[in-house]
């Protein structure tokens, strides 16, 4: 409960709004990550430990209503510089 009702530099209100947004982003991350049955960079799953470019070279889109997910392709054709083939990064 925010006690501060001031209109001037009300950081209590700003932080409450930020928390609201953080929860939403966390939900988006959680749902998209659960659906993504592979590992890729920082998205690292024990049950799907390999990168899967056949099925998951795609952007995840999250919609608040019903936690719906949609996907759109990753554009791999740059306009001005040479492209390189997607492949697992091994260091």
């Amino acid at each position: 409960m925010i006690q501060d009702k001031s209109q001037v530099f009300n950081t209590a209100r700003v932080e409450a709004l930020e928390l609201d947004n953080l929860v939403e982003v966390a939900l988006a991350t959680m749902h998209a990550a659960e659906a993504r049955t592979e590992s890729r960079g920082a998205h690292c799953r024990e049950d799907f430990s390999e990168r899967d470019d056949v099925n998951w070279l795609t952007h995840s889109l999250y919609y608040r209503e019903g936690h719906r997910l949609a996907y759109k392709p990753v554009r791999l054709k740059p306009q001005t510089v040479a492209s390189f083939e997607p492949k697992p990064r091994v260091y």
Partner: peptide
């Protein structure tokens, strides 16, 4: 302090 008194503003 801000936890106790959320009216204290700081950056």
């Amino acid at each position: 302090i801000k936890d106790l008194d959320d009216s204290l503003s700081l950056r």
